[in-house]
Amino acid sequence: MGLRPDPGLSLALPYGQRVTVGDLRGAPALLVLVPGAFTPLCTNELRDVAAARGALAPARVLVVSCDTAATLDAWRSSEAADVEVASDSWPHGEVSRALAAFDEATGWSLRRTVLLDDSGMVVWTDLAPGGRARDVGDAVAAVARLGGDDR
């Protein structure tokens, strides 16, 4: 891996807040990039991530899309999903690009999962082919390996 995203890159959270990549340091962070809110495959993945939230601890989990923060908050609320959502809408796709997870042709994030260690270094990544869901169990296993857990 060896990639350490710029700590100044930021994502919009609901209600006008922002989080930078630098803010994620100090504990593991799992960024689950999805193409778009309210789409069937992305909604199923949101549900899967929310259901696995306990197994993903201690990582901070953010479901990220180029949709606006308000759209992502409405999506999360409509699914009663207990997971953080973050918008990469402005500058459009900046964080997705830095993580090699932006599709220039569509303007959407690719279906990529990125695990950052507590120093902000990318230690694991997964990329699903177009139209196919990821197995959240792979992310659970990666988080467990990072923590030295034998789940």
Rank of each mutant, 00 (worst) to 15 (best):
R25K: 04
L31H: 00
L31S: 01
L31I: 00
L33P: 01
L33H: 06
L41Y: 14
C42H: 05
C42N: 04
T43C: 07
T43A: 09
R47A: 12
D48Q: 10
A50D: 12
A51Q: 09
A52F: 11
A52P: 12
R53N: 10
G54L: 08
A55G: 08
P58L: 15
A59V: 12
R60M: 13
L62H: 03
S65W: 02
S65V: 00
A70H: 15
T71K: 09
T71H: 14
T71G: 10
T71L: 12
A74V: 01
W75G: 02
S77A: 15
S78W: 15
D82F: 15
E84G: 06
E84M: 09
E84L: 11
V85C: 08
S87V: 01
S89A: 10
W90Q: 12
H92S: 12
H92R: 13
G93E: 00
L99Q: 00
A101V: 04
F102H: 07
D103E: 09
A105D: 14
S109W: 03
T113F: 14
V114I: 11
L115S: 06
L115N: 07
D117G: 03
G120E: 07
V123P: 07
T125C: 10
T125V: 03
L127I: 04
L127N: 05
L127T: 03
A128M: 12
A128R: 11
A133E: 06
R134E: 09
V136D: 14
G137F: 11
A142S: 08
A142W: 03
V143T: 01
A144C: 10
